[in-house]
Design a protein around this nucleic acid. Sequence first.
DNA 1: GAAAGTCTGTTGTTATAACAACAAGGAGTG
DNA 2: CACTCCTTGTTGTTATAACAACAGACTTTC
Lengths: 220, 220
Amino acid sequence: MNLSNTQLFRGLEEAEITSLLGCLNATTRSFQKGEVILSEGNITENIGILLSGLAVISCNDIWGNTSILSHVAPGSVFAEVYACIPGESMLVTVSAAEDTSILFMNVGRVLATCINACPFHTRLVRNLLTVCAHRNLQLSQRIQHTSSKSIRGRLMSYFSECAKRAGSNSFLIPYNRQQLADYLNVDRSTMCNELSKMQKDGIIEYSKNQFLLKDSLMFQ
Amino acid sequence: MNLSNTQLFRGLEEAEITSLLGCLNATTRSFQKGEVILSEGNITENIGILLSGLAVISCNDIWGNTSILSHVAPGSVFAEVYACIPGESMLVTVSAAEDTSILFMNVGRVLATCINACPFHTRLVRNLLTVCAHRNLQLSQRIQHTSSKSIRGRLMSYFSECAKRAGSNSFLIPYNRQQLADYLNVDRSTMCNELSKMQKDGIIEYSKNQFLLKDSLMFQ
DNA sequence: GAAAGTCTGTTGTTATAACAACAAGGAGTG
DNA sequence: CACTCCTTGTTGTTATAACAACAGACTTTC
């Protein structure tokens, strides 16, 4: 895993990262497939970065039902939310879906001005904040797009964001139908049906992943 | 507004805050009711703190429909998500719902080590990160609790979190029925009905805001 | 180029949530 | 106490989404 390509170490050279990791006293640990990396109910002060393998984030409700919330791919940061809230115990469990190696960094050390006053430190903190803000924005957007009770409303909300980001009423979406349905928390076939109706109603036109919003007030 | 009571300045004395604000070159601006504070499409490098009044965060879809996403109360931080992601233009508009005064702080200055190497700075950055992480956790939880297609599933997911936090299968919830329904994105009357059924089915018992989860695997 | 697999769109049926309307039980106020 | 206001729970109806099943288009692979 080349750390300089990760969100957290963006803008830092390999040599700088090595120096930084020493300064932070970061540690690497390996986990076998199935092993628990961080357990629900515990408090962590460590930010994790998955170097290789794959991890799953899951949650048990109090009746014993387990549900998988998300996956952690190589280069991704995890547990930073819990590490950054002092005293907050974890509501989820992180476990290894494959043989996995993890880099742990103590938040306190990340945030404390280091003895050497190393300049890479500032960059790391800025990156950590950006990672957190980014995740925040993605979550907010998803909540916004799933706030409508109707499938059409959810699609329009999502398409609005796409159009704004593209700066055009024509854009590509990064999901296939099943993924879009999962994102909007609706049934795929029902969503396909609704897309057809919207096209019949003249609101949108689409072909595969290419969409065009008609009669929009913007970009005319 | 007493800044030392806000999330962002927690742990700092009034005098320290005053010194810090000078160091950050923070500025205060007033807005009349209805005036736009930050506009969709723009890029902001400023974190806002609402000192007095009230602001609304709203969103226009590209067909011209406006929806209100949330309110900003005195002491709350806003726009920090956009300020912390370099180059990210805003997808929402913040405007004054009443005559309002806002404190703006440049993120770059917050993160840069100041010339005086003032120690309060570190605390501010840590607080900013905590605010961001906290919001993150709340959003994740809400997504989790609204991921089930059924009202019962949503309630059970939410109640599970409550029980874990309380460390007991008996707990108080901080919402009335309408607020809980809004949080779970369901209809209030239908939710009331489902709560009754769950009680009949022997899964829960409740009275007003006090709930008890029966047959749970925890806390027996 | 045949076969298997994946993705998309369609239909009909069923389950479920939204909605509207109302009754009952406080809480607060004059 | 009578009054209003607000919250909660109940019922019946209607709208809508989930679900299941399938057909057609397109990919991939041997």
